[in-house]
Design a protein around this nucleic acid. Structure first.
Lengths: 135, 135
DNA sequence: GTCCGTGCAAAAGCTTTGCAGCCTT
DNA sequence: AAGGCTGCAAAGCTTTTGCACGGAC
């Protein structure tokens, strides 16, 4: 018999609705602190804990993702379509890239290892055009 | 005229030599704290700060790498050959995978974006065989 | 009425850093 | 002798959490 995990119930919150809207409206892969600053304009008493708690809920719901890009702080995005990231080593900027997706490599790799592969991420590192121009 | 960055001078240290040896001898992609525990067996007065400082130097020298795998703490490795990671979503274990490398995708992607790509990382997420057996 | 979400503040956890003394060069 | 490296401890930062209150349902 299977143990059924209790379904978590989410209530509506204006803060979370607006947080998601802000995250969806930017392409900058912002930090929690940046989101806090934006959202605080609408909710002057907003607390940073609320931002973190709501980001966590949005991730549970599959509406937001955390990006691990080597910074000391986390960055988030709300884009759900499959895509990769171009990460600039000079300025840390993250740019979405979705012109080519490799769904086939999960299978290709999966056939050769004893590991159930569900997904993959690819990040490209280099220098963005802005930083190239500057130097 | 080009500004030449002053070359950093490194001195020998027994702690760093042994740290690298320990990192090279494991396949577990350890945390700084794990390395500290191992190294402290040889240097009873060792401080965690020394581990971090030396990891940082080893990374500058290209002898160690930090792996961003979504944990709250960093993990490190000393393997220099190109390889990818299989990351278990259940237990967090990281396994090296080097049977297939895709050097060509840097060029393939690079041709279509205004971004100088130097390298890429690929991480596969899923369930390791240990965790699959358990469930 | 329940009990989830919020604000506030404190705590937690990993990593960094200032300092004095030691060791490498 | 110069200055990087170390241990120790304190500080720094991001993220998490306890609590009482307000809001969603």
């Amino acid at each position: 018999m299977q143990l059924k995990k209790k379904e978590k119930i989410y209530r509506y919150s204006r803060q979370r609705e607006r947080l998601l809207a802000i995250l969806r409206a930017t392409e900058s892969h912002p930090t929690a602190s940046w989101l806090y600053d934006r959202l605080k304009e609408e909710f002057p008493n907003l607390s940073l804990g609320t931002v973190y708690r709501n980001l966590s809920i949005l991730m549970e719901q599959g509406l937001a993702k955390k990006i691990d890009a080597g910074s000391t702080f986390d960055r988030f995005e709300a884009k759900t379509s499959p895509h990769y990231h171009l990460i600039c080593k000079k300025c840390g900027k993250i740019i979405d890239f979705e012109k080519r997706f490799f769904p086939e490599i999960n299978d290709e790799i999966g056939r050769s290892v004893d590991f159930d592969i569900e997904s993959h991420r690819i990040d490209f590192f280099g220098t963005c055009s802005d930083c190239r121009t500057k130097s």
